[in-house]
Amino acid sequence: MNSRTRPISPHLQVYKPQITSVLSILHRITGVGLAVGALALVYWLNSAAYGPEAFNRTQEFMATWFGRLLLFGWTWALFYHLCNGIRHLFWDAGMGFGLPNVNFTGWIVVLSSIIFTLGSWFIGYGMVGG
């Protein structure tokens, strides 16, 4: 009997995506994305230490549409990871394990991450005017 054709453990792909599983993997994905963002932060700080020309080049790149897209993505990833991280800390304290509760706090996390992201960009554009 060929062991290669036998069914192995259940495939992730055959499961219907649910709010719980999608938010769980998003926590990891945003975490890895934020590690890349942290690298950009290191670059930004070091360009500032290098001198005004290097710093201005970094600032100019961040002002391009691509730079802004990256920053917008990192803003959302940061707020999502922050909100969902707080949700995780409540679970760690033994709170909010009921299924209706888990679904409800999941949607709260999605909604608040979007509101905080749009809110901070709204404030940002209001302060510098584009």
Partner: peptide, 18 residues
């Protein structure tokens, strides 16, 4: 610390080194 950092970053937009 993250909330403070985000609040600060908004002010960094278009900032020069000085």
């Amino acid at each position: 610390l993250t909330l403070w950092f985000i609040y600060s970053t908004i002010k960094f937009v278009g900032m020069d080194l000085i």
